[in-house]
Lab assay of single mutants.
Amino acid sequence: AELMTLTIVKGAQGFGFTIADSPTGQRVKQILDIQGCPGLCEGDLIVEINQQNVQNLSHTEVVDILKDCPIGSETSLIIHRG
């Protein structure tokens, strides 16, 4: 298992991935745009978004944080894999 830092840019259609609740937090459910989120894999656990720890937040709260990220700006994700 490892922590990885990824930088992704939000496009007009969003980030290009969906998230779902899991017992340990929000996991990447589906990658819709592989080019839009390079390095991200289905099943990755989202630990931080732009230096904000999201592991204890609800699904709705994490979705809102992602929605609030401006289109075209870089967003830093720390994910836990494995």
Rank of each mutant, 00 (worst) to 15 (best):
G14H: 11
Q52S: 10
I71C: 06
I34Y: 13
V62R: 00
K10E: 01
E42I: 07
L32Q: 03
V28W: 01
Q26G: 10
Q52D: 14
Q26I: 06
N53D: 11
L77F: 09
M4G: 05
V63R: 08
D64M: 02
T7A: 12
L32R: 08
D33K: 03
Q51G: 09
S22C: 06
H80W: 08
C37R: 04
Q35D: 15
D68C: 06
I34E: 10
N53A: 07
L32E: 11
L6S: 08
N56M: 09
R81C: 15
H59R: 12
I31P: 03
L3G: 11
E2V: 08
G82S: 07
E74V: 05
E48R: 06
V54A: 09
I34M: 09
G11Q: 05
I31D: 02
T5P: 10
S73Q: 07
F15M: 14
E61H: 09
T18E: 12
I8V: 12
Q55A: 08
T24D: 10
P38H: 02
G36P: 09
H59W: 08
F17V: 02
S58V: 07
Q30C: 03
H80K: 02
C41S: 14
I78P: 00
L66C: 01
F15S: 04
E2P: 03
E61Q: 08
V62M: 03
L45Q: 14
G14P: 10
Q52T: 11
D44Q: 01
E42M: 14
P23T: 09
R81T: 04
L3K: 14
P38V: 07
H59L: 12
I65R: 08
D33R: 09
D68W: 04
N53R: 09
L66P: 00
E48Y: 13
Q35R: 13
F17R: 00
Q52G: 06
E2G: 09
Q51S: 11
G82Q: 15
V54S: 02
I65W: 08
C69G: 09
K67M: 12
G11F: 06
S58C: 14
I8N: 02
Q30M: 15
G82K: 04
C69L: 08
V28L: 03
V63E: 11
S76P: 10
C41P: 00
N53Q: 11
Q52L: 08
N50Y: 01
F15Y: 10
E2Q: 08
K29I: 01
L3H: 14
C41R: 11
E2W: 03
G11T: 12
A20M: 15
G16H: 10
I34A: 11
L32I: 09
L45M: 15
F15H: 12
G36L: 02
Q13A: 10
Q51V: 07
G25A: 10
I31Y: 03
P70R: 12
L77E: 00
G25H: 02
I31A: 06
L77R: 00
Q51E: 12
I71S: 04
C37N: 15
E61D: 12
L57G: 04
S73E: 10
I78V: 13
R27S: 04
T5H: 05
S76H: 01
I71H: 03
V28C: 08
D44Y: 00
S73R: 05
I19T: 04
N56S: 09
C37A: 03
C41L: 12
L77D: 00
I65E: 04
Q55H: 00
T75L: 10
A20S: 13
M4S: 07
D64P: 03
N56C: 02
F17L: 05
F17D: 00
E61M: 15
L6D: 02
E42R: 06
V62L: 06
F15L: 13
S76G: 09
L6G: 02
A12E: 10
G39H: 15
S73T: 07
V9S: 06
K10S: 04
V28D: 01
T24L: 11
T24C: 11
G72S: 13
G14M: 07
Q55I: 11
E42C: 05
N56V: 05
I79T: 08
I65L: 08
T24E: 13
V9D: 03
T24W: 08
I34W: 06
T24S: 12
Q55D: 06
N53M: 10
E48V: 07
T18N: 12
Q55F: 14
K10L: 02
G36N: 14
Q51C: 08
T60N: 14
V62S: 02
S22T: 08
P23S: 10
K29G: 12
R27H: 07
L6A: 05
G14T: 11
I49M: 03
I78M: 15
L77H: 01
S58Y: 03
Q13M: 06
N50L: 03
C69K: 15
L6V: 11
V9E: 07
V28N: 01
D68A: 05
S73W: 09
L45A: 07
S58K: 03
T60Y: 04
R81P: 14
Q52H: 11
S22K: 14
V62G: 00
S73L: 06
Q30P: 06
V54I: 08
L57W: 05
I31N: 03
Q55S: 04
L32H: 01
H80A: 09
H59Y: 06
T75Q: 04
V47W: 07
G72L: 12
K10P: 04
M4P: 08
C41Y: 08
F15I: 09
N50D: 07
G25T: 02
S76N: 12
Q13N: 08
D21M: 15
Q30L: 15
C37T: 09
D21K: 10
S76C: 13
D33M: 05
G14Y: 08
G11E: 05
V62C: 15
T75M: 14
F15K: 02
V63T: 04
L66F: 14
R81S: 09
G16T: 10
G82I: 01
T60Q: 12
A20G: 08
L3M: 14
Q13H: 04
L45T: 02
I65Q: 08
R81I: 00
V54M: 07
A12V: 13
Q51P: 00
V62E: 00
Q55K: 02
Q52A: 10
A12C: 10
I8F: 14
D64Q: 09
T60S: 10
S22P: 00
D68R: 05
G72F: 02
Q35P: 02
I31E: 02
V47M: 09
G39L: 03
Q52R: 12
T7Y: 05
T60M: 13
I49Y: 05
T7C: 11
Q26H: 05
S76K: 11
I19R: 00
I31V: 10
I19H: 15
